Simulated assay, not measured.
Amino acid sequence: MISETARLILRPWQESDAEDLYRYASDPQIGPIAGWPVHTSIENSLEIIKGVLSKPETYAVVLKSAGHAVGSIGLMIGDASNIGLPNDEGEIGYWIGVPFWGQGLVPEAVNEIIRYGFEDLNLKQLWCGYFEGNTKSKRVQEKCGFKYHHTNENIPWPLMNDIRTEHISCLPKNEWKEKINQ
Rank of each mutant, 00 (worst) to 15 (best):
N44G: 06
N44Q: 08
S45H: 14
L46N: 13
E47S: 11
E47I: 10
I48R: 12
I49H: 13
G51N: 15
G51H: 15
G51Y: 12
V52T: 06
L53F: 14
S54N: 11
P56S: 07
P56I: 11
T58S: 12
V62S: 02
A66R: 05
H68D: 01
G71M: 05
S72F: 07
I73W: 07
I73M: 08
I73S: 04
G74F: 04
G74Q: 07
L75C: 05
M76E: 08
M76Y: 13
M76C: 07
M76K: 11
I77D: 05
D79P: 08
A80Q: 13
I83W: 02
I83A: 08
G84T: 10
G84Q: 06
L85A: 10
N87E: 03
E89Y: 02
G90Y: 12
G90E: 06
G90Q: 03
I92P: 04
G93V: 10
Y94L: 09
W95M: 03
W95V: 02
I96T: 05
I96Y: 01
P99H: 00
P99I: 00
W101F: 10
W101I: 02
G102N: 05
G102D: 06
G102E: 01
Q103L: 13
P107Q: 02
E108A: 10
A109Y: 07
V110P: 05
I114A: 00
I114V: 14
I114H: 10
Y116E: 02
G117W: 15
F118S: 02
E119I: 13
E119K: 15
L121G: 01
N122R: 13
N122H: 15
L123I: 12
Q125S: 11
C128P: 00
G129E: 08
F131L: 10
F131K: 06
E132F: 01
N134A: 07
T135A: 07
K136E: 04
R139L: 04
R139H: 14
E142G: 01
K143R: 14
C144G: 05
F146N: 09
F146H: 09
K147L: 10
H150I: 05
T151D: 01
N152H: 13
E153K: 10
E153A: 06
W157Q: 06
L159R: 15
L159F: 15
M160N: 03
M160I: 13
D162S: 11
R164H: 01
E166N: 09
E166S: 10
H167P: 09
I168Q: 09
I168A: 07
S169A: 12
